[in-house]
Design a protein around this nucleic acid. Structure first.
Lengths: 141, 141, 141, 141
DNA sequence: GTGGTCTAGACCACC
DNA sequence: GTGGTCTAGACCACC
């Protein structure tokens, strides 16, 4: 399953779904135009209520990540116009500042932190490459 | 005031205090051994309930960032050991992964992202240097 | 094609058809007595289920906009009487009130709003005039 | 009660709440900084489930109309920065076009339509003036 | 006391 | 079959 949700986490389940779908798209496991599971199927797979999945899907649609088509299903959005681009860039910087502060408290030097970030990034890119290869190879996925 | 709290933010106020204190320490505005305002003073300054400040201080102590000394007050810890080092490193990596996913959805390339991170980091280091200078100059702060 | 339908819109497709047919009549692209495409033809052109088109046609007939003649086809009504005149006038006023409230939230003054309404109205009348001219010219569709 | 909701309407109740709150603000019955009823109080008053009110309030907050302050309550927003200004202006024009088409089908002339719009607008402004007077007079409201 | 999340289950509009 | 809305009621975090 490409989506893991932990009910006992302090992050609400519907937010975990949002993050998980975004991550799956970023890793190209889901691609523009792909069909997502129906609200009720995903709810069954994750053993949760369908309202929780619906809430996540509605938020994802509001953010322009997916499209809900009445009576047909849910699809990864094709148009990549990004709403609230500027706010989101600023939020990204904010998240980076929090990381920097935490790194300081863990006694990491600037170099340590940059190395760590690059390591996480190339791990991530590596995983993404695998998925990409899987999906492209003959008979893949 | 070195600490700003926004009641209408979606981030709980006690967490804003925690983040703010950590940032102040990381920027060396507060240094090991410095005395923090009392719970009630800080609550008055921030116009909030003292229970909220108390909760933040308790959490900061639990993380080893500050020390509550009965009858004397609250002080920035002289950091000997960092508790939960491994969990916190993993949480740091997790936060980085979230940033990477969000950067992808904003159509940033890997290079863009690395540049951005370095820019935020050197801005931050710049600010820190200023504070450091301020604090060192005679009659500083 | 004089009728555009967006499946991913939040407005149901059958309502988009209703609105589109009404707009085409108001703009005199379709005139009293004109034949409309059959349910199945229109469904094919718009790549949708014929039940959806049928539902739109039934509603349009109920409103007295078109006439279904068994075995002959569907025609734009030669409007003799408008059913539900009073309810529809009241619904019109309601729609106007919603516009007024939204205009307020967009910080538009009364004058701005009236100007905007007049501008939209004369744009619309302008388009209508063009269609009218097209339809009248020799060989004109 | 300044807010009426009709359960049997085809408009979902949570949307009726959204429209009602916006109308109350536009009519200055509710003013920036005013406290709204709590989620649960309003639900009781309207004899509906608190989740329905919560959904409406969350949407209103997302639109920047109100502010939800944790543990304290819900308030009419003070900052009037309007998000999605351009889209909302375009949606307004769209709503106007629908009105124009419907007016045509009701055999209203352009002049009739403009008169009607102005009449609705001045009625509305009249009501607003009354509320305004009520709220300002000594011991008012 | 305040809003937020979630479930189990119902009913509905649309395709 | 698809998503959307709503209820009754539980539990939770925050202030």
């Amino acid at each position: 399953m490409w989506l893991q949700v932990y009910p006992q986490s302090e992050i609400p389940m519907y937010k975990q779904i949002i993050d998980g779908v975004k991550a799956a798209i970023a890793k190209r496991y889901l691609r523009p135009g792909d069909k997502l599971p129906t609200v009720r199927d995903l709810a069954t797979q994750l053993t949760m209520n369908h309202n929780t999945v619906a809430k996540a899907y509605q938020e994802l649609e509001r953010e322009g990540v997916i499209e809900l088509v009445r009576g047909r299903g849910t699809f990864v959005a094709k148009n990549v116009s990004v709403p609230h681009q500027l706010e989101r860039m600023e939020a990204l910087r904010d998240a980076m500042r929090k990381i920097i502060v935490e790194a300081h408290h863990l006694n990491l030097s600037e170099t340590d932190l940059l190395d760590m970030f690059q390591a996480v990034l190339s791990d991530w890119t590596g995983e993404q490459a695998e998925v990409y290869a899987d999906a492209d190879e003959p008979g893949g996925r």
